[in-house]
């Protein structure tokens, strides 16, 4: 990497630490540290929410997905604006007016302590493991680019983030998120501009989309109703609605953000920012992938985008087979380029029939290239014994490192760091808040000074940061454990939404009903995952509906003395006029 790029990355990392610490006010009090004194402006919180959600995996993986599969994945986000409206109208006023620190604290006020402790524990377990995975993916890529070990790149993103999250609390997290979000969007727009400029002189933006369209990569709506298919219009609008309501409405990493605003109206505005901008932002990420596909149609692509495995195969025992495959791949790619030229020419001359024929030929040539690429991947899987090997995550990194000019490489790497750090910081802050508020203060030391709780929360931030770093470095060894925990986490996403629905919409529901309902919901989702091949998005619907039905019935049969506030007191009074 060029010296200029190193300087850019170093300046970025230093700036984040300095800025994160500089911008903290009232971080010596509990409310200031955890909730920014409930004084952050809605636009900063809105950007922070989006930055936490946009991880480095999005930047690296989703661009690769756009390259290989096109815009189809965008359907996943179609329900997000509706989810934001639902949450703004329902859960947000409840949380805000209850003056809680965490979403789970609200559950004790409404139900009982066991429901709070169980949901809080599920959050801590699943989030700490998934944070390790979120840290590991960009670290692997950055280790290849920067020539450092994975341990070093994990530390490079984790240590600054732990430092400013620990010292500055949620304010530091939110304000650095704002800058990181700006950097990420700038990086994406720069990538689009460079990609369009890198196309051959006679190939324009519309030609690039036409080529993508000819191979089905511009399919944005799949109206088939197939419950086993992950991304269709129906799973994206119905099933994903439940997932987004659960993620944005009940996950502490998101809830904590909008609790930092001074009023319900501002909290709503911060959420509605995602309603307006999430789909266009995700389309921009996928567009980078589409344009990389057009770019590599004309600039001969490597058979494997992952240079490390490419070298391993070339030097390995099956080198002859691999090299022969590579020669066939180069010929197929050249044939595809010729077909692409024909499409472009026919389109530019406005010859409709010729264009139709050319599009069909191009699609067939692209299928040849894909088939050979699949053969190459199969070969890697056989040689390395990695059953799930895929080089899709290396497409964007390869483009950055081999095709961008010095300066821009540093900027894009800083953007990837930004995406990683904004997610890590948000999660760490939420993990620390839940540990202290829902467990330490609740069960260990109910009465202590703010200074004491702040000290414990700083220790908790370092603990969770260190644990996630270890998981990230050892992700390969721990993969089965991570998978189990993540699966466990996915069982509870829809189910926990069901608990919150019971809390705010079913006045008769009690703690016993909510707790038994939660267990029943998770059990049903686990059974669905084990015995059917229903796509995971639908698990959220199954979980939520099961919890509400079982929870309601159990609440009627198993009465409980009120241990917390009822929703008439906490929510109904608060909702009007806000």
């Amino acid at each position: 990497m060029h010296a200029l790029d190193w300087v850019i990355v170093a300046v970025y990392l230093t700036w984040m630490i300095w800025d994160g610490i500089r911008l903290t006010r009232r971080s010596g009090e509990l409310e200031g540290y955890f909730l920014g004194g409930r004084s952050l402006p809605w636009w900063a919180v809105g950007l922070s929410v989006m930055a936490t959600q946009l991880s480095a995996i999005t930047l690296i993986g989703t661009t690769g997905q756009g390259y290989a599969d096109g815009m189809r994945f965008l359907q996943f986000y179609y329900a997000l604006p509706i989810a934001m409206i639902v949450l703004s109208a329902t859960l947000v006023p409840f949380f805000h007016n209850a003056k809680v620190f965490t979403a789970y604290e609200f559950l004790e006020r409404r139900f009982d302590v066991k429901t709070r402790a169980f949901t809080g524990l599920l959050f801590l377990l699943s989030r700490s493991m998934s944070l390790g995975v979120v840290m590991s993916a960009p670290a692997v890529f950055l280790s290849v680019v920067l020539g450092l070990s994975v341990t070093q790149t994990v530390l490079l993103s984790a240590v600054p983030t732990i430092l400013y999250t620990m010292l500055g609390g949620v304010q530091a997290v939110a304000w650095t998120d704002v800058k990181q979000m700006v950097l990420i969007v700038f990086g994406l727009v720069a990538a689009v501009v460079v990609l369009v400029m890198s196309l051959p002189a006679d190939v324009g933006f519309v030609d690039a989309l036409t080529l993508a369209g000819a191979t089905g990569r511009m399919r944005l709506f799949d109206f088939r109703f197939d419950h086993t298919e992950q991304y269709t219009f129906w799973s994206g609008t119905i099933a994903a609605l439940f997932l987004f309501c659960s993620y944005f409405g009940t996950d502490q990493s998101q809830v904590q953000r909008y609790l930092t605003t001074p009023s319900v109206a501002q909290a709503r505005s911060s959420l509605l920012m995602s309603a307006y901008w999430k789909i266009p932002l995700q389309a921009l990420v996928l567009l980078v992938g589409i344009l990389m596909f057009a770019f590599y149609t004309f600039a001969s692509p490597p058979m494997l985008f992952d240079a490390r495995h490419d070298r391993e195969l070339r030097d390995g025992p099956r080198a002859a087979e691999y090299n022969a495959l590579d020669a066939r791949f180069a010929a197929a790619a050249a044939a595809r380029t010729a077909a692409a030229r024909e499409v472009t020419e026919a389109r530019q001359r406005g010859e409709a029939e010729r264009l139709d024929a050319a599009r069909e030929t191009f699609n067939a040539r692209d299928a040849d290239v894909r088939a050979l690429h699949d053969d190459a991947r199969t070969l890697v899987r056989q040689v390395t014994r990695q059953a799930d090997y895929n080089d899709v995550n290396y497409v964007f990194p390869t483009f950055i490192t081999t095709r961008l000019p010095p300066g821009l490489v540093g900027l894009m790497i800083a953007a990837i760091f930004a995406a990683a750090m904004s997610t890590i910081a948000g999660e760490l802050s939420a993990l620390s808040t839940t540990s202290v508020i829902d467990f330490y203060r609740r069960f260990v030391r109910p009465v202590a000074t703010d200074a004491h709780y702040l000290f414990i929360s700083k220790v908790a931030t370092v603990f969770w940061g260190a644990l996630a770093s270890v998981v990230a470095v050892r992700a390969a060894d721990l993969s089965s454990l991570i998978q189990v925990v993540n699966q466990f986490g996915s069982f509870f996403y829809g189910s926990i939404l069901g608990v919150f629905i019971l809390a705010v919409a079913v006045p008769r529901a009690n703690g016993n009903g909510a707790f038994v309902g939660l267990l029943a919901g998770m059990g049903l989702v686990a059974a669905t995952a084990a015995y059917t091949n229903t796509a995971f998005l639908w698990h959220n619907v199954i979980g939520a509906v099961a919890v509400v039905i079982v929870g309601y019935i159990v609440s009627l049969l198993w009465k409980q003395q009120s241990t917390g506030i009822r929703n008439q007191e906490s929510g109904n009074r608060a909702a009007p006029g806000t």
């Binding site: 179609y78 109208a89 989309l209 944005l220």
Partner: peptide, 30 residues
């Protein structure tokens, strides 16, 4: 409350416009 309702209606109108735009994009390029 009526202010919020107007905001929600605006979000839904923009949402429908975005989805329609994306659908037309698919029709044009596929």
């Amino acid at each position: 409350v009526s202010g919020m309702r107007a905001t929600y209606v605006r979000v839904i109108i923009v949402w429908l416009a975005v989805l329609t735009g994306l659908y037309l994009l698919q029709r044009y390029f596929s």
